[in-house]
Design a protein around this nucleic acid. Sequence first.
DNA 1: AGATTTGTCAACAATTGGGTTGAATATGGC
DNA 2: GCCATATTCAACCCAATTGTTGACAAATCT
Lengths: 111, 111
Amino acid sequence: MNAIMSALAEPNRLNIVELLRDGPRPVGEISNRLRLRQPQVSKHLRVLSDAGIVEVQPVANLRIYKLRPQPFQELDAWLDSFRRVWEERFDRLDDYLHELQEQEKKDGNKE
Amino acid sequence: MNAIMSALAEPNRLNIVELLRDGPRPVGEISNRLRLRQPQVSKHLRVLSDAGIVEVQPVANLRIYKLRPQPFQELDAWLDSFRRVWEERFDRLDDYLHELQEQEKKDGNKE
DNA sequence: AGATTTGTCAACAATTGGGTTGAATATGGC
DNA sequence: GCCATATTCAACCCAATTGTTGACAAATCT
């Protein structure tokens, strides 16, 4: 999960991913569209590849990169565990304060 | 979007967010549970706060932090734009190769 | 008011990470 | 086999970020 996040945290990499959303692209085209130098794109693609976000498919002397579904599914699952944070109004501040009071009662009895 | 990602990219911050998923917590408790020093937690909470991921609510001498729904909604919306990448089998490599051939035809005619 | 607890701020050292350059590898066409 | 194209690799510099320490601010309790 963390690997995915840190890979997507870099702006250029996020742009690359959003570009690849429209379909597979070779390095050169990514480089042109995003106005980045090729070695830079290669480096970023390497990071994305290590994170399992993209995969390569060589065609002639081109290396065509495309998105892999898995990390997006993972991200979705992770996000799902936060659903109640925003679907229910999930404050729970009161809950915490009550817990705190309970705790103080116990501590008070002990000492 | 990028602000959210970079905030969540740091492992400790991700842990903090996952801890807060279960409800609001004061800095000290976060510090204890995650075995981090308080200034470090404060610093990370600052980053999360700047990204709009958490908000504070002072109670007595405690500062209780909790998650804000918005960034999670944004993340969900962003992820949604990638749905077809993994719901439909979204290869499109052939599409790209055909585009490429069309392009070559045009170039060939020009020169 | 004084002592204690909770938390932030400021400054510093150490690490990480991005960008650039130049050389190296692989493929296709002549 | 040789040249052009597409891409990666390695080494370097620079900027941003993390973690630590010590001082500081606010609230609580006696």
